[in-house]
Design a binder for these strands. Sequence first.
DNA 1: TTGTACGCGTTATCAA
DNA 2: TTGATAACGCGTACAA
Lengths: 383, 383
Amino acid sequence: MLPNRFENCRIDSTDAAILAYDRGMGARRATISDVAREAGVSPSTASVVFSGKTPVSAETRARVLAAAESLGYSGPDPRAASLRTGRSGIVGVVFEEHLGAAFLDPVKTVMMDGLADAVAPLGAGLLLLRDHDPAGVGASLTTAPLDAAVLIGCSGMLRESLSVVHTRGIPVVVIEGDAGSDVPRIDLDNREAQRQAASHLRSLGHDDAVVLSLPVHTDWKPGWVPEGTPIEVDVARDRLDGVRDVFPRARVYAAGASSIDEGLKAGRVLLADPAAWPTAVIAQSDLLAAGVVRAAEEAGLDVPRDLSVTGFDGIEVDGLAPYELTTLVQPAADKGRAAGAAVAAMLDGRDAASIRFTCAFREGNTTAVAPVMATGGRAASGG
Amino acid sequence: MLPNRFENCRIDSTDAAILAYDRGMGARRATISDVAREAGVSPSTASVVFSGKTPVSAETRARVLAAAESLGYSGPDPRAASLRTGRSGIVGVVFEEHLGAAFLDPVKTVMMDGLADAVAPLGAGLLLLRDHDPAGVGASLTTAPLDAAVLIGCSGMLRESLSVVHTRGIPVVVIEGDAGSDVPRIDLDNREAQRQAASHLRSLGHDDAVVLSLPVHTDWKPGWVPEGTPIEVDVARDRLDGVRDVFPRARVYAAGASSIDEGLKAGRVLLADPAAWPTAVIAQSDLLAAGVVRAAEEAGLDVPRDLSVTGFDGIEVDGLAPYELTTLVQPAADKGRAAGAAVAAMLDGRDAASIRFTCAFREGNTTAVAPVMATGGRAASGG
DNA sequence: TTGTACGCGTTATCAA
DNA sequence: TTGATAACGCGTACAA
């Protein structure tokens, strides 16, 4: 008597199938071997019927399908197929933040859309992952059956995440982050683009600007960023550099997140002291910029007459009408698609090149000629 | 010895790559057996070191870990583990629509958030799936290695999707849809809630209302819904029933999607003919309602004086200020969490109960006493 | 066109 | 606490 429940493993399958049939699917699920046996063909033939990788006679196929039907067999078990083929059809998308937070960001939403488009033809789906798992449990980069991974703006844990996928030998693409030269990177000309906005302001007579930055590192609390602070988040750093190319001494306040609310809160701080009102705020996202516009309204400032505001991203900010932000329009969907294409290429054994997309400057009605300094309260502070 | 296709991606990476190099390029990845051999223990012991399911002496564990390190072994292959355990740690989330569209909907976003929270302790991740795969390829319910599935508002293909998961024997939970008595269902008291809004309007003197409905079936084109049209989308049907409980003859226009834009477009149609202006529009979502408010502004109508508008969902509609929609607030995050809990229960072999959540009526400033009929253009059309 | 035989990498079970 | 063994269900050379 063998240790398992059935007399013999070979027969085991047959018995189980019969039992399953007899007992109305009470026992274990039918396998492809059961189907093959029922159809009077070999397992490999049955396999081929389902995969379609080899021609099968119509009659054989029909018999197999009928057998499957009668056994309640619903096709190859993806787990087994996955072990065999080495592919799971799953692309992990790693976010730095809380999943819900990620989808609050219109840019990421659109990017995901492009990404979904691009991996679909690959037969792959998107698995949502967080890079730092608070609970210590939960699907993660280390344990999920991934064919590839896309890291999105994961500047904080980036290195850690990378080493994980690296040792697992999983192809990886990074969006908006620096992962070293061997990892394809999809990003923007952040610095150049942001410089355009700054130049635009300077050409309007602004001789300084305050930067409302994205968080400069993980778990950042809103506040001023002292000069010399190392900025871990690539996007924030690059965009700031773009500003500094034009306004070298621009002060920087970093918000806690990219949202209208955070922009509003930050805006209140920026505009708290009438004696120190800036003439221009360069926000690193449209949502932040929208918040600043709101804050300006609250403070009784007219945008753009008293205060110019620029954004970044070029999304439609609902409810900002009649304002239309002066901003840098980034091709978010294309970024997602490019990431998907890169994944596809790598899964295909080809090399994937890094791609840098270009933003388009779009002038809205939130920037205007710098106000004449009526209060005299603000002497030149930079630039 | 299968050549690893991603060797070139890995060459210049960290330790693992160096070791791969040491052992001769193209060598296959180390397995747990390799590690065990290197450590001088049996494969099962090595396995136990990684899974932690059985006590292992500190010394043995150290040896195994060291061996793993030296071999660049990054832990058990999830695919193989999955085949063996029958669990993949993946919960599929099936959307009816384009993925991007799903995340444009704030309610779904919040729901996903709750769902993510609830499945995390399970050690599971969320796989984004579409129920009708345009390409015919792509990860789908049929081929993805799922432990469970959550169907979200998939009224169109619902039955089909269900039969797939059913024959696969995958536990499934349905949010906002009817899947039969054996499938746990998470939904809202749509009809009762919507009836409240209608009653509210009637108590304000409105004797009819136009319904701006969600799409009534997949691929719906915006337009009037003739009476007697079968409404496939459960949510749309139930909410409409709620209206009809109060305004039996209410006309119905169904939008193409739930968004401000679609609401605006629909609103223009609804308000096109001044002679047939309704006094109240009952929108089936806040986004649609917001669009209607915009359309009313365009048409020169004052909300709520000339036109009352109600929404559904209770989300914050950005930029609708100073309006605050009269609406039904649904507990979206709780719905997601409940679905996650149901999944957890079923995976645990327990039964999961269906849950019906209750919406809270919230009166905003978009509804008011019905206008006196100055134009005389609209005789009572309903009751 | 079909069948045989084997391996994919892991873990559960049981015995030592 | 450790080790031997047997599946898990499939895909695919290769042979027929």
